[in-house]
């Protein structure tokens, strides 16, 4: 609930809001037009959330809002007042990487890495509501996250492997024929 506003000498209002980010209540003073992605990055120093298109197409700014993936570039920070937000910084618990993160490293699912935080969060939301997804379900879940390196095959493999508790590829896993996915 917005309980305090401050108006500066130019008449611009700022609002005191509380974002519950990764389990911590963070109180910030924002203008009405402040975008959630910017507040996370610039005010709270959570720069794991990336900005790409800033129009809700690329998914690199994906965060979980009340457990659901949303593009944080398309949410006003003030709209998230009082809500639970999970950013990529909140996925590892006590410095222990999540299974998805572990698998993405071991399956070489990270190329330039720019889409990775968003990919991990979309995958995290999927595995939370559906712990044993099929390949099409994984592809559907990350369909709002674009990988410019086009490294989708390994990303999908890593998410499926994480769902099976298999955090590293087997010895011959990369000897498959070209273009054949698992």
């Amino acid at each position: 609930m917005i309980n305090q506003t401050i108006t500066d000498k130019d008449g611009v209002k700022r609002y005191l809001i509380t974002l519950n980010v990764n389990g911590d209540a963070r109180t910030v003073l924002v203008k009405g037009n402040a975008i959630l992605a910017n507040v996370l990055r610039d005010e709270l120093n959570l720069t794991g959330t990336k900005k790409g298109c800033e129009l809700g197409d690329c998914g690199s700014c994906t965060v979980l809002l009340e457990g659901k993936p949303v593009d944080s570039c398309m949410v006003l920070a003030i709209e998230a007042d009082g809500l639970e937000i999970t950013t990529i910084e909140g996925v590892a618990v006590n410095s222990k990487l999540d299974a998805i993160q572990e698998a993405m490293i071991n399956f070489a699912a990270v190329q330039c890495g720019y889409c990775t935080p968003g990919m991990v969060l979309s995958a995290k939301a999927l595995l939370t509501r559906n712990p044993h997804p099929t390949e099409p379900e994984v592809r559907e879940a990350i369909s709002g996250n674009l990988c410019r390196c086009t490294g989708y095959v390994h990303i999908v493999e890593a998410v499926l492997a994480a769902s099976e508790g298999r955090l590293s590829p087997g010895e011959h896993e990369y000897l498959r024929e070209e273009g054949v996915s698992i």
């Binding site: 809700g56 197409d57 998914g59 994906t62 809002l65 659901k68 993936p69 949303v70 593009d71 398309m74 949410v75 979309s122 559907e140 879940a141 369909s143 709002g144």
Partner: peptide
């Protein structure tokens, strides 16, 4: 419609 993120918002 759109993608999962947009459908949630």
């Amino acid at each position: 419609m759109g993608n999962p993120q947009v459908r949630n918002r």
